[in-house]
């Protein structure tokens, strides 16, 4: 399945990347390349990964987040995870990644 897609918006230093579909090892490779191209082009202060339309995520998604967290640190920026589903949030918390990466819920502030 190659149905996982991204759409991106850049505004005033904030690059928002919305991921739509399933984030597993198969999809993560393409997502990584696509997101990194956008980081390289915009060099944002904040990267927001909008997960509101992610229907499934496993630890390959955690790796994707961890890699983007490192990219953003390298350019002096930060990563924010936005609106994960209950299941995605469970995986993030099980991994302890929530202690390292900021999670924003609908209506909250990044």
């Amino acid at each position: 399945m190659d149905q996982t897609e991204i759409s991106a918006e850049y505004d005033d230093g904030v690059l928002t990347v919305r991921i739509e579909g399933e984030v597993d090892h198969h999809a993560a490779r393409h997502l990584r390349e696509d997101i990194d191209k956008k980081i390289f082009f915009h060099r944002p202060a904040v990267l927001v990964l909008d997960l509101s339309r992610v229907g499934f995520m496993d630890s390959s998604g955690l790796g994707l987040m961890l890699g983007r967290y490192t990219r953003m640190e390298e350019i002096g920026g930060r990563l924010v995870i936005s609106d994960p589903s209950q299941q995605t949030e469970k995986i993030i918390r099980l991994s302890g990644l929530d202690k390292k990466i900021e999670i924003k819920k609908k209506g909250g502030q990044a």
């Binding site: 993560a28 990584r32 496993d58 790796g63 961890l66 995986i91 099980l94």
Partner: peptide, 19 residues
């Protein structure tokens, strides 16, 4: 062990077995 991975790329969390 959580966070253990043999992958050097920094793109894997090493959480598969723990999860």
């Amino acid at each position: 062990q959580p966070l253990y991975t043999t992958d050097p790329s920094g793109e894997r969390g090493g959480m598969g077995f723990a999860i």
